[in-house]
Amino acid sequence: MQADTDESLLKRISAGDQRALRLLMDRHMARAIRLAERVLRDSAAADDVAQEAFVRVWKHASRFDEDRAQFTTWLYRIVMNLALDRARRPGHAPLDDALDVADSAPDGEETLVRRERVRLLGSGLAALPERQRAALTLFHLEGLTGREGAAAMNVSEKSFESLLGRGRAALKAWVSASTKGRTP
């Protein structure tokens, strides 16, 4: 039996079928949470954004036009809008301490240096303007193309490229400056 496509589930959702929504969430909720957390660096806020994103899907399923975009592109855009809105709220501060990931490898000098670089990069990511962090996330971590990333952020490809370039340059500078600052 052929599984329902996302787009056919959306048609059922627009007719009020909650079971179809449940199926769609089973497929994509993890992706929505992770994308939001990559942008927000805050797991509680990410959970909230992902849930709100699927409430929007439920409410506006009839507006989705499968001739214009895939469901995942639409979902990316909804999550990204909500996450960027949340990131701009006063009081929101990305967390960078969640990046101290336990490593079972022996603590050789090389491992320690690498871990420190990763920790610095995590701090640098948290310090980036949210739109640059979002662009880097979409391109490098979600694996979207420039065109797909631009569509998800609702900006032109040129603007997306600019965000990517500035974000990467800022990260590189951050790691370099931090390393020099710590090295005698």
Partner: peptide
């Protein structure tokens, strides 16, 4: 390093709670 600094994938429990919350 960017990939290594990535957030973890959400656990099935967390995903289930998010679905119920939605």
């Amino acid at each position: 390093d960017l990939a290594a600094a990535d957030v973890d994938a959400p656990t099935p429990d967390r995903v289930g709670r998010a679905i119920a919350g939605t």
